Simulated scan of single mutants.
Amino acid sequence: MDDEQLPRQEPEDPRPQRVPAFNLPPVILVSLAVLVAVFALMNVPSWSDDTLNWIYFTFSFMPARYAFPLSQQGLEWLWTPVTYSLLHGGVEHIVFNSLWLMVFAAPVARRIGSARYVIFWILSSAASAFMHAALFWGDQTLLIGASGVVSALMGAACRFAFPVTDGRRVSMREAHLNPRLGILGALRSRTVVAYIVMWIAGNALVAFGITLAGDSSQPVAWDAHIGGFLFGFLLFALFDRHPRMEEQEAAPLDE
């Protein structure tokens, strides 16, 4: 009998594997860079009050713009449903939104890709703004911040990021590989429902003036958060590149 030559096994590298500190998709890094750049630009010391007021008026969302004939106004109504999401009022505001963006935008961007992520940002920003406008029709206050988009990303993540896969919980880094749950399937997941309940409770506190994080001196547009969350949760399938796994909805979840 001929001797069989076993494949040579390389010794394992005893050195620990290095994990990148920020393992984020490039489009998320670009998003964060844009937010920081806009914030830095808005805080240039040499800006006069008149210049800052013009910038806020020109790029913030204001419900009153849509309560009058658009033909009698400037063109701000075209871009402000999106550009307001790039503005922030203070350091706490942008830091809080950026942290949540890194957590929830990463799995969504990995799943749907950069181009669809940009489209998702634009449409979820508009959905959040017009939810705010519907409840405060004709109001002349200015809406700024990416919180509505962040809420939409949270809603989208509920459709795929929380399920139990093969009896184990997957990390957020691998969550984009999960099958997409249908709306009813997601609502049958105790993990998703618990998360939604906590999210609603947090926004309810904000609605009553109790701010859990961020700048408590500034009013928070909780209604825009709800508009964004509903957009992401209900319409995520329109952006998803992965087919829905029908058997996933029928399988028991979070047991």
Rank of each mutant, 00 (worst) to 15 (best):
M62S: 15
D2G: 03
R173W: 08
L205F: 12
L142C: 03
M172D: 07
F96T: 11
E10L: 12
A161E: 07
F39R: 09
F104C: 01
F130G: 03
A106R: 09
H242R: 15
A186F: 09
H88M: 07
H132D: 01
S151Q: 06
L32N: 12
R190V: 02
M154C: 10
P16L: 05
L41N: 06
Q248F: 15
E174M: 10
V19W: 11
W137F: 08
A21Y: 15
F22W: 14
S85E: 03
V38T: 09
H176M: 03
G138M: 05
S48Q: 07
S48G: 15
L143H: 07
F136L: 04
A129C: 05
L41P: 02
L187A: 07
H88T: 10
F136I: 00
W54K: 13
R18A: 14
N23A: 14
G214W: 02
L238C: 10
R8Q: 13
Y84K: 11
F130H: 04
L24M: 10
I28P: 11
F59P: 04
S217H: 15
L78R: 12
W121H: 12
S60M: 09
S71M: 06
V44R: 12
V19M: 08
M62G: 13
G167C: 05
R110I: 01
S147R: 01
S85I: 01
T83Y: 11
A157I: 00
W100P: 07
G232S: 09
G74L: 02
I200G: 06
F229L: 09
F68K: 10
I196F: 02
W47H: 13
Q218E: 13
V34R: 01
N178W: 08
A194K: 11
L181G: 04
F162A: 03
V82N: 11
Y66C: 01
F120P: 07
G113S: 05
I112Q: 03
A105I: 00
A251I: 06
R173M: 03
M245D: 14
W100T: 01
G89F: 06
M1T: 05
F160E: 02
F57A: 11
F39Y: 14
R188N: 13
Q73R: 15
I28Q: 03
V108P: 08
A115S: 11
E247V: 11
E255F: 12
F104L: 01
L205P: 07
A175T: 02
V197Q: 07
V150E: 00
F61V: 00
Q140E: 11
L6I: 05
S114A: 15
P252T: 08
Q218I: 10
I112S: 08
E249M: 12
L184K: 10
F130T: 02
Y56D: 06
H176C: 03
P69S: 07
P107C: 08
A134C: 03
V82L: 14
Q248C: 10
W137M: 00
S171M: 03
I226K: 00
E247R: 15
D223P: 02
R110D: 04
V170G: 14
Y56T: 04
R65F: 08
A157D: 13
I55S: 10
I144N: 10
P26S: 06
R159N: 03
M62K: 15
A64T: 06
F61M: 05
T141D: 07
E76T: 13
N53I: 00
V193T: 07
P11S: 05
T211W: 09
P107G: 11
M245N: 15
W137V: 00
N23K: 14
Q72D: 10
S85H: 08
M198R: 06
A21Q: 13
Y56L: 04
